[in-house]
């Protein structure tokens, strides 16, 4: 029996800001941006999820629904602050699996 498997997109991103941010601050900022642009319904369909974030390098991996990659990118583009400090999130690479993202993956 065929089983429906959700397709995902994984985005490797890095943060430019004047200070370092914690995982919680980054996750909050991403969620707030999606909410303000697309609302609660958008948040549920985009299925954004912060998979990994390295506080030392200020870079991480984010997951979203593969059909809503543009919405995810637009939401990231509209982030101008994280916590109380000005910041920007830039997408480095996009891939269908975390493994290929870490290997190389599609260039942003």
């Amino acid at each position: 029996m065929p089983v429906y498997r959700k397709r995902r997109r994984y985005l490797k991103f890095w943060i430019r800001g004047n200070e370092d941010f914690s995982v919680k601050e980054v996750a909050d900022a991403i969620q707030r941006s999606v909410l303000s642009l697309y609302g609660v319904q958008g948040l549920s369909t985009i299925e954004t999820n912060l998979i990994d974030f390295d506080e030392d390098s200020q870079s991480g991996i984010l997951r979203c629904n593969h059909g809503h990659l543009r919405e995810m990118r637009a939401s990231l583009a509209f982030i101008t602050s994280i916590g109380e400090s000005a910041a920007a999130i830039h997408v480095d690479k996009v891939s269908g699996t975390i493994r290929s993202l870490k290997k190389g993956g599609e260039t942003a």
């Binding site: 430019r16 800001g17 990118r73 583009a77 101008t80 830039h90």
Partner: peptide, 15 residues
């Protein structure tokens, strides 16, 4: 620099 965005992010915003 903090207001700069990548090309694909600029394009995605046009959605």
């Amino acid at each position: 620099p903090l207001l700069m965005r990548g090309p694909r992010e600029l394009a995605a915003s046009m959605q």
